[in-house]
């Protein structure tokens, strides 16, 4: 049986070096809640495992002077939940991250892993897209930034270049009157995978939406940024017509499959339903801020 090499570098440069040197035979280990399961099921057989949790930047939560918040890609869900201010600024992102797995999994699972796993049903991804989060990526060619929605390439695949590692998510500064929310449809009440996930972030002034972003998960090969839904909301008072237009935009954006978790017709319908419900929660939160 083949041996697996495990390395736990303390700097990003070492990690990138090891990752690039393994030329595709390595996997990054953050919480491991996807990787270890995939290894056990024989889906992946990495030659090298690179544990990035020993790299300080990967597990740091930083509040930048301009109001932005930077989250290390390997920060586990419970650490974010315990942060005194993150959940106040981004309740929708936090609730999405805290939907990943059970209590035990929460202690390990990270938003970086959720994104890089490439699942169209990853819960944190639609919320991050709605938030307008930007990821910092480091690879053999240096550092670059890309919007979250540019990372997924298809089920199990990302647009990261060989040797590149997601380092952090940076969430923008929050104007007054902002709120976000994430809802997913699962048949059970927990311990399940999203049939549809919907993240909405709104900024409102005087009851009118001034900015909006909508992320939609599990309805296409990648999590989607639905710009038409956002457009339908911006400038509206979230009246029924605007919500229905945004819901229609969500339905139109869906390119789902029939699978064991849901049918095409059901997923398309649910995308519209969740848009309306998620927007209502985000608006209520925006009103309170």
């Amino acid at each position: 049986m083949t041996d697996i090499r495990y390395v736990a570098p303390s700097t990003l440069e070492e990690a990138v070096g090891a990752f690039a040197a393994a030329s595709g035979a390595a996997r990054i280990l953050a919480g491991g809640t996807d990787l270890l399961v995939q290894m056990r099921n024989g889906v992946v057989k990495p030659g090298t495992i690179i544990d990035i949790k020993k790299i300080a930047e990967m597990t740091a939560i930083e509040e930048l002077p301009d109001g932005r918040i930077r989250i290390g890609a390997a920060v586990p869900g419970v650490v974010l939940a315990e942060h005194p201010r993150f959940g106040k600024a981004w309740p929708g992102v936090l609730e999405a991250i805290n939907l990943i797995g059970s209590k035990q999994v929460q202690g390990r699972a990270s938003p970086g892993g959720n994104l890089c796993n490439g699942s169209p049903a990853g819960d944190s991804v639609p919320a991050m897209i709605a938030a307008g989060a930007v990821v910092t990526v480091q690879g053999p060619g240096g550092r670059r930034e890309m919007p979250v929605e540019a990372v997924p390439a298809g089920p199990g695949r990302t647009n990261l270049a060989p040797g590149e590692i997601v380092v952090a998510f940076t969430l923008p500064a929050r104007p007054k009157g902002s709120g976000d929310a994430y809802l997913r449809m699962i048949p059970r009440t927990e311990m399940d995978i999203a049939v549809v996930g919907c993240g909405v972030s709104l900024t409102m002034a005087g009851g009118v939406v001034t900015a909006a972003r909508v992320g939609l998960g599990a309805v296409a090969p990648t999590v989607l940024l639905v710009e038409d839904a956002a457009k339908a909301l911006i400038g509206s008072r979230l009246d029924d017509a605007a919500l229905e237009a945004a819901a229609a935009a969500c339905r139109a954006a869906c390119k789902p499959i029939n699978d064991k978790r849901g049918t095409i017709a059901y997923r398309i319908k649910v995308a519209g339903v969740l848009l309306k419900r998620t927007a209502a929660i985000a608006a209520a939160r925006a009103g309170g801020n």
Binding site: E190, M191, I193
Partner: peptide, 16 residues
């Protein structure tokens, strides 16, 4: 069988 796991063979959990 396409759902040979407790994830996709959906037995109720406590909160259900």
């Amino acid at each position: 069988v396409d759902n040979a796991s407790f994830l996709d063979y959906r037995m109720p959990v406590c909160s259900d």
